[in-house]
């Protein structure tokens, strides 16, 4: 019982991690580096969008990603009875 419980918990955790890391990759390496030139054609205020992602946006998303993970995992811990 505990062993299958642990396995299911781990599987869900990995799923969360992969989704969040995909976003992590897209905002930094995607928007900030690989697609920067295309995004730079769009301007928001004085910022070219690619430049903004590289020097501002990616960092804001990083912070949000960690707090989302914290929330998701606290819930998951509770669901599987691993909270304390």
């Amino acid at each position: 019982m505990t062993k299958t419980n642990a396995k299911a918990y781990w599987k869900e955790n990995i799923k969360y991690v992969l989704i969040l890391l995909l976003i992590w990759f897209l905002v930094s390496y995607g928007a900030g580096i690989l697609f920067k030139d295309a995004l730079n054609k769009i301007k928001i205020g004085g910022f070219k969008l690619g430049f903004w992602f590289a020097q501002q946006g990616a960092m804001y998303v990083f912070v949000i990603l960690i707090f989302v993970y914290v929330r998701l995992m606290n819930k998951l811990d509770k669901k599987y009875g691993y909270d304390e």
């Binding site: 890391l21 930094s28 990083f62 960690i66 993970y69």
Partner: peptide
């Protein structure tokens, strides 16, 4: 960005 790796 390394902190995301650290936390996750």
């Amino acid at each position: 960005g390394g902190y995301v790796l650290l936390a996750l």
